[in-house]
């Protein structure tokens, strides 16, 4: 089932399907490894719930809600 990366529960893994952001922002995330087919794990959130930390291709990156919500992932 496809869902947004932001709605992926802590501790679960998703596979990137698409990024619904404008060109520069999209390529920025892709360059960090969020290309179609990449596995992403939702790890933990900041005190206010935003941003959240995700593991992708061996490193941990923080994404703000507006970005994470634009990434579509498939559950594993």
């Amino acid at each position: 089932m496809d869902r947004s990366l932001f709605s992926l529960p802590e501790g679960s893994v998703g596979v990137v399907r698409a990024i619904g952001l404008e060109r520069d922002a999209r390529r920025r995330l892709m360059d960090l490894g969020l290309t179609a087919g990449a596995r992403v794990t939702s790890l933990f959130s900041a005190p206010s719930g935003d941003p959240r930390a995700y593991m992708v291709r061996g490193s941990v990156i923080a994404l703000r809600r507006q970005d994470a919500a634009a990434v579509t992932v498939a559950g594993v």
Binding site: R39, T41, F44
Partner: peptide, 22 residues
């Protein structure tokens, strides 16, 4: 393994959770 270490994750959650982070 491609995963995140359990111990590291516990520390990170302590440092970032709503009740404990700040």
């Amino acid at each position: 393994p491609a995963g995140y270490g359990e111990r590291q994750l516990r520390i990170d959650r302590l440092l970032t959770r709503r009740a404990t982070g700040i």
